[in-house]
Each structure stands twice: as structure tokens, then as C-alpha cells.
Design a protein around this nucleic acid. Structure first.
Lengths: 129, 129
DNA sequence: ACTAACCTTTACGTTAACGAGAAGGTTAAG
DNA sequence: CTTAACCTTCTCGTTAACGTAAAGGTTAGT
């Protein structure tokens, strides 16, 4: 069991952020002692890191809230599972489209790099020859 | 030459957004007539679309401002080119790290999907005898 | 038992990226 | 030459995702 500061440090966020996430229903402490202290387990740390990653690639906390549970959830009812798979597939498509955009950007950047380098070598050979 | 509304429509943004981008130095009209009307060319449309894409994968307008010019820039001086290549490579690394995150997320999602589907088929076979 | 380093809630502040009107000028088709 | 559909600047409002005290309680090491 870790106190909030420990989790914050490990995950690279502030304690304020963790309380904010809790308020949004994203990550909750495993236990809250009578004095109000929050105690977290490793899973909370894992979730927090995932949130950060998804946020970093352009998802809002609101979107993340819709999917973060799907990474772990283990409900027992068949019906629930069918829904879960549906949501996961939607999420997967979203991820894939982002990957496509980034790969396209990557190609363009690489092309621009080699194009520029080519021009540079021409300039240099002119200078030297 | 297109008026602002036309560009906005094509790029899927509002006119307000285009003026805001102009204010940040991201996209500028090709010409502004004496009455203040903005007229854009195809390149502005292209840039605007790129901005949207980069934004969609998690870059802020501030970060985009630093790199958007690199996708097009054709300055003549050798020194300028060397700098440009440097910036492009940094940008490329940034893009690559985002791709890695997304690919990792993708794997996890796929794993969770097949895991869930496996459990589902077990549930069904139980149900059916 | 002291004290530094934690933790709590409450609440106001901030930045980014626009949205939404007001008040008025311009253009293009009929 | 009218009028709908554009365009302009200006300004105030909004949402997300926290930051930053303030005022005080808790814990852990010495």
C-alpha cells in the first residue's frame, strides 16, 4: 500500500492530479483511512501510467474514462462481455487511425529530411568543386 | 483563391479557428483585400489539414507551430538547412515515440479482446452443454 | 516529544483553444 | 437594386486539466 505521494512520484504526476482523476472516476485508492489518507495498490499505479500514455497520444480524460476500465475489467456476465468487446474494438479502431496519421506524418518528415540532405550535399559539392 | 468560409469547410474547421491560427502565426491568407477579406490558396488548405492531424495525435498548437513550417520550408542557405534537418529529426523522434505508445496500447487491447472472446466461448459451450 | 515531511479539504487562479454574439460592411445571384 | 449569404473586428464566455496557496491534521524518525 502506497500513499498518494509515492504513487504520484512513480507515475510522474502530482498529487493534485491523482485527486482530480479520482474525482473524475478514473483512479481510486484501494482504501481511505479514517483520517482521510488515501492508500493505493500497484494496479492504481498501472492505471495512472496508462492514463498518462493515452493522454499523451491525444485522448481526453473523458474519452479515457470510457475505455480505461476495458483494459482490466473482468465481469462475469456474458452480456457484459459482448459489450466490452464491442467497445474495445471501437477503441482499437480509434488507436489504429491515430497510428495511420502518425505513420503518414513520419513518411512525410523522412522524405523532407532526405530531400533537404540531398540539396545540402549538392550545395557542398558546388562549394568544394 | 478561396475565401475563409471555403477553406474552413474544406478543412473541417470554423472561420474562427482559421483566424485564431492566423493570430498564432500558423496559417496566413495569401492576400488580404483592402476591405479586410482574407483570400487563401491550396497550400493554406493543406497546412490547415496537417495542423488538425497533428493536433489530433496530441500535439499542442504551440508544438505544431515549431514544426509545421518544416514540412514545406525551402530556404536556400546551407546553415538554415542543417538546422532544419535537426528539428525534423527531433520531430521524427517525437512522432516515433507516440507511435510506440499507440502500438503498445494496440497490443494490449487486442490481447484483452481475444482473452475476453475466449472466456465468452467457454461460457457459451457451458450453456449449450 | 519534537519536527520535517508527509497528508487533508477548500477554493480561487491559469492556460489553451476556441464558441458565440453584436454591430456592421461586401458580394453575387436574380 | 435588393437581399441572402457572405465577410469584418471586438469582446466576453467556456471547458479541460490541472496549479497554487491557505489552514490545518498525521506520521515517522531521532
Amino acid at each position: 500500500m502506497y500513499k498518494i505521494g509515492e504513487i504520484a512520484k512513480q507515475a510522474g504526476v502530482t498529487t493534485r492530479t491523482l485527486r482530480y482523476y479520482e474525482q473524475l472516476g478514473l483512479v481510486s485508492p484501494d482504501e481511505i483511512t479514517p483520517n482521510g489518507y488515501r492508500y493505493y495498490n500497484d494496479r492504481a499505479l498501472d492505471i495512472t501510467k496508462r492514463i498518462k500514455n493515452l493522454q499523451h497520444v491525444g485522448l481526453s480524460l473523458d474519452e479515457i474514462k470510457d475505455v480505461i476500465g476495458l483494459y482490466f475489467q473482468q465481469k462475469k456476465e456474458l452480456e457484459a462481455k459482448e459489450k466490452t468487446v464491442g467497445y474495445l474494438q471501437l477503441h482499437l479502431e480509434q488507436i489504429n487511425s491515430k497510428i495511420s496519421l502518425l505513420e503518414k506524418a513520419r513518411e512525410e518528415i523522412q522524405e523532407q529530411i532526405s530531400l533537404t540532405q540531398e540539396l545540402m550535399s549538392k550545395l557542398k559539392s558546388k562549394k568544394n568543386g
